[in-house]
Every structure is written in C-alpha cells, then in structure tokens.
Amino acid sequence: MAWLNIIVQGALLGGLYALFAAGLSLMFGVMRLVNIAHGDLIVLSAYCALVIVQATGMHPLASLVLVVPLMFAFGYGLQRGLLNFTLSGGILPPLLVTFGLSVIIQNGLLEAFSADSRRLQAGALETASLRLGDQLAIGWLPAIVFIVAVAVIALLEQLLYRTALGRAFRAVSDDADTAQLSGVEIRHVFALATALALAVVSLAGVLLAIRTNFDPSIGPARLLYAFEAVIIGGLGSLWGTLAGGVLLGIAQSLGAALDPGWEILAGHIVFLLVLLLRPRGLFPKQAE
C-alpha cells in the first residue's frame, strides 16, 4: 500500500511534467525549434503570478486570468520579434539564441527578485486531500494539476486535428514553403504556436509555484524534465508525452523513496534507458 501511494503521487507529479512538455513539444512540432529557455519561461510565469498575487491579493489560481493572456502575448511577440529570425540558418541560431535568452531570463529574475525561494500561497487547497485508504491519500492540488494536464492535452489534440489553425500547424510542420504557397503566413502561424506554447507554460508555471518552492535557478531542470517526458513518450504524440511525464514522475518518486539523492537521478536514468532501448520513445507516432 505504501508503494502504491508512492506510485500514485509520482503519477500525479507526472501530470505537471506533461504540462511542461506540451509547450516544448508544440514549438518543436510546428517549427522544429527547441527552446532552451523553456524552463526559464516556466519560472518567469511563476514570478509573473507572484507579482500579480502580491499586488492584488487575489488567489494564485485566479491570477491565471491575467498570467495566461500575458504570456500568450509575450510568446507572440517573442516569436515575431526574435525567434523567427533564427529559423533560416541551420540548428545553431535557434539553439544559441534561446540559450542566451535562458541566461538573460535567469539573471534578470535574480536581479529583480534575488535568489530567495518563493511560493504561491493557495490556502486550504495546499493541504486538502482525499483519503482513500490507510496509506493512500490524494491531495486535491496534485489531482487538480493532473486533471488540468489531461484537459490541456485533450484540448491541444482537438485544436491540432479539428481546427483550421491546427491544420495550418501540421501543414507548416510538414512543409513550410508549400504551406506559404497555400496562403499561410508562416511568421504569424509560428508566433501563434509560441503564444499557445507559452500560455500552456504559464499554466504549468503557476501550478508549479503553488505545489513547490521556486527560485530563479530552477528553470533548466524543468526544461530537462519536459524534454525527457517528450522523448520517453515518443516524438509527435501528445498523449505519449503525458505517458512519458507520468513515467518520469513515478521514477522520481520511487527513487526518492529509496534515497533522497536518487530522486532526480532515477528520472534521468529512466530517460537514458528509454533512449538506449527504444530510441523512438515508448509511444511513437506511426511512421509516415
């Protein structure tokens, strides 16, 4: 029963990782752009929520009403003003520009907020839980995070396969030149993809900030978790990414149960094993 509890908690944590991963996956899927600053943008949204909560006194979850549109707009501007210019010259420019961006965001946050650890206070929600047995209890907050992750992935799937924008995303991903010939403004479509990715990122950032402490330096680790969830799940499949996140979360919580020093390590090792044994991930999209 104790082990079941560990696995359940890990799986719920995996929902958060899937949320981290969804934005990364979307940007890579549409424009083959791997955003090294992804984790720092998660942290940036957490600080954004912190400022809003401190200024208005609203509940952290309510701050999403402002944080999500703000990050959506920021993503649109970031893509049109900066990242679009990195996409025509091989793999170095996008990688190194987003790497620079990562360092800028981290140190900017450090300058503005210091290295102190912060947390968004969510009142009773933080501790409320549903007791399911002697040793099994599900916290409301982790459960909400998991449900949000599933909902976001379901919505993104709907968007990708049921809307004109999703069709344009997939067409641009297949063949950007030909998509332009069909009248797609790729700079605009790319910007919408990043905007959407950052909207998801902001959701993830706020939920992260309610669940755990955060400081300006934790971004890169979140990027690695997101990346691992994507690779474990298999490229191009959002539901696979959810599975990848869940597996990663379970590995970490089992590792932590053995020894605190093994928590993060266990996740990385599962990722490396998947890479060795199933390089295309556990649930790859069918080959075209």
Partner: peptide
C-alpha cells in the same frame, strides 16, 4: 508536395 500528415480533404482545405 502534398502535406503528408494531412488527409486529402485537409490538403484541399489548406
């Protein structure tokens, strides 16, 4: 240069 991950009708709608 059809879009390989789109259906025929989606290609036309593009």
């Amino acid at each position: 240069r059809l879009f390989p991950s789109l259906t025929v009708e989606e290609n036309l709608r593009m």
